[in-house]
Write a protein that binds this DNA or RNA. Structure first.
Lengths: 151, 151
DNA sequence: CGGGATCCCTGCGGATACTG
DNA sequence: CAGTATCCGCAGGGATCCCG
């Protein structure tokens, strides 16, 4: 997603003019050739924070601050961006209570709950195979060193 | 992955000195606070091209050029980087045949085949719910426009 | 053919300051 | 509290050239 097809940002110096503080309609009309469906999923749940949000919302709804505290590596901006994106995709529902200290709650939609299962599958796979991957990496890093073929 | 903890790249002008043509040991010792396991999976299969490689290698082995032609949006560099990464993780196996025109074949390892199932789950989920997501997006983009609260 | 090495642009995402 | 608005570093990744 967000391929440089016709974004046509006004380039000024060393910064794009469309600095996208909070992007509204970022998705492009699919200029990719191959089956970009998978790309979309990854772009969605793999946006670095979406998984945490989805996982955190497992069952109970949460407020903005709660999510921020729970995920705790995330910045306000990225939490907002992620929540907006997930809301736009119909994966979470945002409820605003018009009270004096603003109260906003987020919860998974039925669709989001089905995605949670996929995410859980991924997390489960990781838990089971992380050791193998680590071992494979160690083995790989003990590379025989190409040996310049002197002679 | 690749969090800016202690990478300590020599910063020269507007470009990093460690231009990372082909990174060797990019993974960091987990400086994240939350359960970064999920992040690792996403970082792995969500590296924009890994899914295509994994999916393409479903069952039959493939040569470098075959993969490049199949995935077709990918650059040589990214295909190489992705293949190296997956090989290091023990997800694919690289076989070099010492013949005059070099012949290199890639195939999923047993571990990689288990990941393929996870990827398939994701792709399947996408196929089933893309319409819903699209509808949700359209609905969201027909936003009631916040109404500046005149008066 | 299968990459390795370089150069360079872009956009992701962090930090910070300000509003209702 | 729950955002919005800006600024900007930096790594991801494409284009290109070259090599065994």
């Amino acid at each position: 997603m967000s391929l440089p097809t016709d974004t046509a940002d006004v380039y000024v110096g060393n910064s794009t003019f469309s600095d996208l503080s909070l992007p509204d309609i970022p998705d492009q009309p699919v200029p990719m050739t191959t089956n970009c469906k998978a790309r979309e999923v990854v772009g969605r749940i793999g946006s670095k924070w979406a998984i945490y949000v989805i996982s955190s919302l497992d069952e109970h709804t949460m407020r903005f601050g709660d999510l921020k505290k729970t995920i705790d590596g995330i910045s306000q901006r990225m939490l907002t961006v992620t929540l907006r994106s997930l809301e736009r995709d119909g994966l979470i529902r945002r409820t605003v209570y018009p009270v004096v200290p603003p109260r906003v709650e987020y919860a998974l939609t039925p669709l989001g709950r089905t995605l949670l299962e996929v995410v859980s599958t991924m997390v489960h796979w990781t838990d089971e195979h992380m050791a193998e991957i680590g071992a494979a990496q160690s083995a790989y890093d003990s590379r025989p060193e190409p040996e310049p073929i002197e002679q």
